[in-house]
Design a binder for these strands. Structure first.
Lengths: 237, 237
DNA sequence: CCTACCGATCGGTAGG
DNA sequence: CCTACCGATCGGTAGG
């Protein structure tokens, strides 16, 4: 009888466990901060067994990265097809991206680390996996600028870059940075903190993109959520 | 005659060179991705000599971090004293922070890495070194909300956290992420790219904070830079 | 600031 | 998937 909880682990199961533990450990301590023995130990096998499933440490690193990007490519296009208007597409890309990394902040940590450790190697990967939706968002911004919906001052390229970094960085470090506030108030749970950060992030993303809608009362300050971008249906192209 | 270019390197000179090279290498490859021999080699000394100046690798890491934070504490309070109104103070904190990291992106990379590698250890440091100006900004936001200058929906804590992450992340990764744009256009220099990113960052920070000022013509879209926060002098408190 | 050296750990291989 | 083992490199020390 094997020592693991389930009766028997198939080849694929073990490989998947290795990927999961490697993701977790690389996200927490970085690629060079984790040894193959660390990963093997957390899976419950020996180092040479790990190297049977993944030829080298670097192969394992690339597999971890590929798994995340593959999952991303499964998620976004599917949701994007359901969105017909440009406004819906923009909203889908933004909220899907935020949710993807909020669902598992380790994804954000890992990609941020790769961006820091191997910028040259990441550039083509960004090009390949982020291009499609960058195109959608950039097109939407340009059309929105022509139609007067989007602020003329927005630099589409820089805007998308900043939002990417903001989502990655906020999700990767929300625990350390989320506790910034000047008064400590009531202790928030990690989930509450993440939710609050997410809401503010979406607000910043939208308000810095869309032109304010004309409001009747423009001198007093109401508490309404105006200025939050177009929610009305709109014709595209 | 020593082998180095200058006639003689004092103790302090060597220690400073070690700090500089360690900052550069830790920023590029992470703490565990750099060996003491790497650092010693780039300074032009041997590993045991390095350990004469810094008792251990971890001591060197803390010294690098301290040097950055000390430089930060020299920069901000000085500029802050010259700013009298709340609006000026906000502007000082924001633009000084951006410039501090734009001046040397390695600072952003190093702090971001520490945030990822040792979040528990960084929390008190954030508390100590970021608190003062977080307080100033948060107070300014709250007073601005009461006066109707600042959007009521802004979550001061989350806003400051996001802006911190945005500045750090954008400055740390501007090379890899700045090249995101859908069309490659003319090849920009690194300095041009950084400048463009900085301008858009400041725009996002301000527009997502300040309420739009009432505009006479609210249906057509002019190219003017309205909605960019208060530039008029104002009374505080 | 150096040479010489330490035990521990690294990624990876042989061979089953 | 394991035991046994490899050379290289790690952070750090002795001693000058």
């Amino acid at each position: 009888m094997p020592t693991s909880r389930s009766a028997k682990a198939s080849r694929a199961d073990v490989a998947q466990q290795i990927l999961e533990q490697a993701t977790r450990l690389f996200a927490a301590h970085g690629f060079s901060g984790v040894s193959l023995a660390d990963i093997a130990k957390s899976v419950g096998i020996r180092k040479p067994s790990l190297l049977y499933h993944f030829q080298s440490k670097d192969t394992l690193r690339r597999s971890v990265l590929e798994e995340i990007l593959a999952h991303w490519n499964e998620t976004l296009p599917q949701l994007l097809m359901a969105a017909s208007t440009g406004s819906e597409q923009f909203d889908t890309v933004l909220s899907t991206t935020v949710r993807f990394f909020a669902d598992d902040p380790d994804r954000a940590r890992l990609i941020l680390r790769e961006l820091l450790d191997r910028p040259e190697e990441m550039q083509p990967l960004i090009e390949a996996h982020v291009r499609p939706w960058v195109g959608i968002v950039a097109d939407y911004i340009r059309r929105g600028q022509e139609a007067g919906r989007v602020r003329a001052e927005v630099d589409p390229r820089a805007y998308v870059g900043h939002m990417t970094v903001l989502v990655l960085g906020s999700m990767a470090t929300y625990e350390a940075v989320g506790s910034l506030g000047p008064e400590l108030e009531v202790q928030e749970s990690s989930a509450q903190l993440l939710e609050r950060q997410t809401a503010e992030l979406l607000r910043i993303a939208k308000v810095s993109l869309f032109r304010p809608r004309p409001v009747a009362d423009s001198t007093t300050h109401s508490q309404r959520n105006q200025d939050f971008g177009p929610e009305r249906p709109e014709s595209d192209d």
